[in-house]
Simulated scan of single mutants.
Amino acid sequence: MRRQAHLTDEAALSVAQDYVTMVIGGQTFGIPVLDVRDVLGPQIITRVPLAPAEIAGSLNLRGRIVTAIDMRRRLGLPADGFAEKAMAVVVEHEDEPFSLLVDEVGEVLSLPSTLCEPVPATLGPRWRDVSQGIYRLEDKLLLVLSVGNVIDAVTPDAIH
């Protein structure tokens, strides 16, 4: 379901960007819709020995091994038992699939790119590192997630 967020008419006429929304620890995030390859319900995740804490493990997606990143751990939030019940947003980075484990996946929002603001300096460093912008919606803030920053921070040697 795609909808136009309630913004001014002038802003709605500007170039829009579509985002898949998701919730992590009560905060709404958005990923550009073109970066999302799949959305999955809870999956069986196999733990990878000696992997960083943010790596929940790996899962099998139609015969491909996909690294699962626990977004709660990545953001410094409590994550006990989270990976077993999390939704999985599958993205690709440098031709490799990754699954971002989130609390829930919402709708697709079409937002004017002119209303995207820089990430506030007051945002915690872990959150700032994974965000590339922020939208002030009527009832909440939407942080735009930088898929590359999320993945590069937890798997620097694995894909470079």
Results as ranks from 00 to 15, higher is better:
131 S>E: 08
137 L>R: 03
144 V>R: 03
39 V>E: 01
123 L>F: 08
151 I>V: 07
95 D>P: 13
45 I>Q: 00
13 L>A: 13
87 M>H: 12
67 T>Y: 07
80 D>S: 09
26 G>C: 10
90 V>D: 00
46 T>C: 11
112 P>V: 03
145 L>D: 06
40 L>W: 06
142 L>Y: 00
73 R>P: 08
21 T>W: 10
88 A>H: 12
139 D>A: 14
95 D>V: 13
104 E>Q: 15
16 A>I: 10
132 Q>T: 11
20 V>I: 09
75 L>A: 06
22 M>E: 05
33 V>I: 12
115 L>D: 12
86 A>S: 07
6 H>K: 15
37 R>G: 07
101 L>E: 00
158 A>E: 11
22 M>C: 08
38 D>W: 05
1 M>Q: 14
66 V>I: 04
152 D>F: 11
15 V>S: 15
10 E>R: 15
59 L>R: 04
34 L>K: 12
37 R>A: 11
54 E>P: 09
38 D>M: 08
21 T>A: 08
68 A>H: 00
112 P>N: 03
108 V>T: 11
41 G>T: 04
47 R>V: 15
35 D>Y: 11
143 L>F: 13
116 C>E: 10
123 L>V: 09
122 T>R: 14
7 L>R: 09
139 D>H: 14
41 G>Q: 02
87 M>A: 15
29 F>A: 06
139 D>N: 12
141 L>D: 05
120 P>N: 01
131 S>I: 07
51 A>M: 08
154 V>M: 04
124 G>L: 10
70 D>H: 08
76 G>W: 03
31 I>Q: 02
60 N>H: 13
78 P>G: 04
105 V>Q: 03
121 A>S: 15
55 I>G: 02
115 L>S: 09
89 V>F: 04
33 V>E: 06
65 I>E: 04
113 S>F: 10
37 R>H: 10
128 R>Q: 10
28 T>E: 13
46 T>A: 14
150 V>H: 07
149 N>S: 13
